[in-house]
Design a protein around this nucleic acid. Structure first.
Lengths: 248, 248
DNA sequence: CAGTGGTCTAGACCACCTT
DNA sequence: AGGTGGTCTAGACCACTGA
């Protein structure tokens, strides 16, 4: 019995860091059930030895799984795979990502698309210098041909200089940003609720005063630069937010 | 000029890990503005040298700040403090914590408190064996004497065997759990909205059909054990959720 | 080219848990 | 008492950035 080490192969000539190769392999083994919930991993020293790695490298691999909440370490005891239901991903998701993952057909109607110096509240939300030009985008989003959300976005022109309305008709904003090389890292969101205005109700196909879910979000990239500010309303009867929080 | 190293003292005889001493000190320096947004930290090697630490230990200290989104590392460049507005804490907060932090006076009316074998949906949400006994708690929460939220909670009796209704009248559930030695680590939340029922509107002092924010949460401790399931409604005109997400 | 962070090694001692 | 993860050291080489 050599534990799980035989299921892990590492490539010393790959540009992928060793700890990352091990971490992703272990993640797959957990995800596929070959490392069932509650099972114990071999010790760090044993695994490092069997894989021909140093213990710090092995530790770094396991640490990434701890950070994701996949396993739990206990001093004097060992490392255990946590209960399966606890495994949720903490992700920076977009509506478009959510819909595609749920196999619902997203569609977008771009209601407005313009470039202008940032109005004061937007300038402040994005921490920009006065006069900085921003895109202003208004979109109506559909899922399976039902209206779902009305979205207002603002982003500095410099973030995605070549952005066009046509791109946004095809794909979600976050995917377009990824194609422009923008990597989001942090998002601050405020989620609330209120009654729909008459105009909102008409666009979303809801009755007057229907409850709407609201979300304001400011997103930042890896360098801490504010990339996007959005103010959105969602039909409460067709959408809800799922959030996973991991304490540090 | 010896940078910031002179502002950091470490205690080799403290039981607090060295990397943690350094990390918290740096965090304080950033929070207090002595390390302003955009400023560069000394290099890892320099800091380690000045503080008499090895580089891996110094790296570990800085890494905790990176995980919190306080600083950004760039290979070949250095480590920079990110823009101040990006600094938000990702926390597992309770309503009680939120209110106390905002200096609003929380008050609780316990409407129901009982112990019984878990009903099926609760049993499933908490991943319990059939027949496991759970507390069922219903509370009306006030802030500054205005009704704010109606909260239903369920938790396994074994999690906090000595729990009483009186404790919940004084403090928030999460604080009571902390006093019982329960450390929460992960929470999965679903946030939505709907119209208030007649009973909810009456309890919350709202009009009929007023929009409410809804939240269902399952919380897990460090061992991955499901500790609590809650189903809550909040007055949308007086409450909203703030969530910060950090991509990994 | 020099300097930075990213990765990796081969040890060591300790605190904590189980037996 | 023996085994576990938690911390720490003193090096090494590499990839990337900027001047």
């Amino acid at each position: 019995m050599d534990g799980i080490a035989s299921l892990i192969t590492i490539d010393r000539f790959s540009p992928v860091p060793l700890y990352f190769q091990v971490a992703t392999t272990l993640e797959d083994l957990i995800e596929s059930g070959q490392l069932p919930a509650g099972s114990r991993l071999d010790t760090e020293v044993t695994l490092a030895d069997r894989l021909g790695l140093s213990r710090p490298t092995m530790r770094q691999a396991i640490q990434t799984l701890v950070d994701k909440g996949l396993v739990v370490r206990k001093r004097g005891v060992g490392t255990q795979v946590v209960h399966s239901a606890v495994r949720r991903k903490v992700e920076l998701t977009s509506l478009d990502d959510d819909l595609r993952r749920a196999n619902r057909e997203p569609r977008t109607q771009v209601l407005a698309f313009s470039v202008a110096p940032a109005p004061e509240p937007i300038r402040a939300a994005l921490h920009l210098e006065p006069g900085t030009e921003v895109f202003t985008i208004e979109r109506l989003r559909f899922a399976d041909d039902e209206p779902l959300a009305l979205m207002h976005n603002h982003l500095p022109r410099a973030v995605a200089p070549g952005l066009t309305a046509a791109q946004l008709g095809e794909r979600g904003l976050y995917q377009v940003l990824r194609e422009h090389g923008v990597q989001l890292r942090i998002a601050d969101q405020t989620i609330g609720a209120r009654r729909a205005t008459t105009a909102e109700a008409r666009l979303l196909g809801e009755g007057r005063g229907a409850p709407l879910l609201t979300m304001q979000r400011t997103a930042y990239d890896h360098a801490g630069r504010a990339v996007e500010f959005g103010s959105h309303v969602y039909r409460a009867d067709r959408y809800s937010f799922e959030v996973s929080l991991v304490a540090r």
